[in-house]
Design a protein around this nucleic acid. Structure first.
Lengths: 227, 227
DNA sequence: CACAAATCTGAGCTATTTCTTAGTATATTA
DNA sequence: TAATATACTAAGAAATAGCTCAGATTTGTG
C-alpha cells in the first residue's frame, strides 16, 4: 500500500535536463519522484509504481505521449499533466480529449506547474466532506478513517465512537458519566470502561511518541485538545 | 440532486458579451447554463442551483472572483475554471491555490475552454460517460460491464447492483441496513445475504491476488476504496 | 418439463472486540 | 512524608461480528 506519506509523481520526459530540473523542484516540494525517458518505459513505470500524478511530454521516443495517456486511462484515473512545446489549439484539444487533465506549453513557469500539480492532487486526496480536524488529527466520518500526521490509524467501533465524541467538541471536558451515557447507552456502571478505552485511544494516537491529545482532568473527566 | 440529464455550468462574468458568447457555445455542446454578472450573485446562484462546474472571471464587481472561489470551496469540490486577463504567473498561482482547478488567460480559444471543461467533467460526473472508475476498477453502467486492471469480470444481477451502490460512493461506509434497503428493497432481514454477496464480489474482484477493494468496517459495514 | 444459474438461508468456525477485575502508578493533601 | 484518592495498565473471560460452506429454493431458458 503506497503513499500514506508523500505523493509520488511520475515524470515522463526525454530531455534529460528538463526531466532532472522538474524532478529536483518536485522533490524540493516534498514529493517523491520517478522518472522515465521514453513512452514505453513510462508506461511500465506507471504500472509498477502506481503514482499519484503523471507529468508527461508529448513527443517521446518509442511511444507517443498521447498513446501513453490513452493507455494509462484504460486502467486508471490518475491526473495527467501534459507538458509540451506544441502550442496549437488543436494539439491542446487532442491532448485533453486523449485523457489528460491539464496541458502546459513550454517554456512554462515552474511555479505554475507546481500550482497546477497542487490543484490536481488536492482533488485526488480524501474527500473534504464530513471531516473533523483537530491539530494534526483528521477524522473522516463517512469513511470512518482516522489519520494522525499522515499516519493511518485503525480503531474498533467503540473506540471510534469515543474518539468521535471527544473530537466533535475539542476543548470541552467530558465527565465519565457523560461519556458513559453517550457511548455506552443503558450502561449500569460499576466498572472503569471509560478509563480503559481512553487508554486504548491513547496507545493508538500517541503510541509513537506524538504529543498528547487526550488529557485527563483529574476528578472530572477527559478532554481532547491540541495543547 | 442535480444533473440527471445534462451537466449544469455556472458562468460568472461581468462582461455581458463574453458571458453570452460562452453561454451559447456551452449550450451548443448540450450543457445547461446559468449566468451571473457579479460575485455575490454568482455565489447565490451557486448555492441555489448546485452546478456541476463553474466558469468564472477574476475581476468581478461586488465580490472578487478569488473570494468567491474560496467560499465555494468551503462547502463543495465542484471544478472551478478561472478565466481572466491577468496573465502573470503569480496571479495564476494565487488563483489555483485559492481553490480553482484551472486558469485560462484571455483572449482564450473557445475550443480549448470546451476541451478543458470536458476534461474536468469527465472526472466529476460519471453520468456523462456512464462510467465509474475507482482505482483500476472500471464499471460501465449502460453495458453492465466491469473490468479490473483490463480483466473483464462477469457479475450476476444482484452482485452488480451491490457493486454499483458501493462504487457510486467510493470511500463511504455503508451499513448492512443501508445496503439491504437499497439492494434488497422490501427485505425482512434475518439472514446474512449482504455478507454472502460481499463474499461473492470479493472472490471475483480480488480472487486472482489483486489488492483488496472492498473493506470490512467491523461493527458498521463495508466500503469500497482503493487504499 | 428439465436443466442451469442465480438467489437466499442457516450453522459452524474463527478472530476480534468488548468489558471486567485486580494490581500498579500517580497525584493530592493532611 | 504518609495516607488517601484517583487514574492507568495488563490480562483474560465472555460476547459478538464476520466469513465460508453446503444446501434449499427460486428464476430463467431451451
Amino acid at each position: 500500500m503506497e503513499g500514506m506519506d508523500q505523493p509520488l509523481i511520475l515524470i515522463v520526459e526525454d530531455e534529460k535536463d528538463i526531466a532532472r530540473f522538474i524532478e529536483l523542484e518536485l522533490q524540493a516540494e516534498g514529493y517523491r519522484t520517478e522518472v522515465a525517458y521514453d513512452g514505453i518505459t513510462g508506461l511500465s513505470r506507471f504500472r509498477e509504481t502506481n503514482p499519484n500524478l503523471v507529468v508527461m511530454d508529448l513527443m517521446l521516443p518509442v511511444m507517443d505521449g498521447l498513446e501513453v495517456a490513452r493507455r494509462v486511462r484504460k486502467t486508471s484515473n490518475v491526473p495527467i499533466v501534459i507538458l509540451t512545446a506544441k502550442d496549437r489549439v488543436e494539439d491542446k484539444v487532442e491532448g485533453l480529449d486523449a485523457g489528460a487533465d491539464d496541458y502546459l506549453v513550454k517554456p512554462f513557469s515552474i511555479e505554475e506547474l507546481l500550482a497546477r500539480i497542487r490543484a490536481h492532487l488536492r482533488r485526488v486526496t480524501p474527500a473534504i466532506t464530513g471531516e473533523i480536524r483537530v491539530s494534526d488529527l483528521i477524522i473522516n466520518l463517512e469513511g470512518r478513517e482516522v489519520y494522525r500526521g499522515g499516519r493511518r490509524i485503525e480503531f474498533s467501533n467503540k473506540e471510534f465512537e469515543l474518539l468521535e465524541l471527544l473530537a466533535k467538541s475539542p476543548g470541552k471536558v467530558f465527565s465519565r458519566f457523560e461519556i458513559e451515557e453517550k457511548v455506552w447507552p443503558g450502561y449500569q456502571g460499576g466498572s472503569n470502561v471509560v478509563d480503559v478505552y481512553i487508554g486504548y485511544l491513547r496507545k493508538k494516537l500517541e503510541g509513537t511518541g506524538e504529543r498528547r491529545l487526550i488529557h485527563t482532568v483529574r476528578g472530572v473527566g477527559y478532554v481532547l485538545r491540541e495543547d
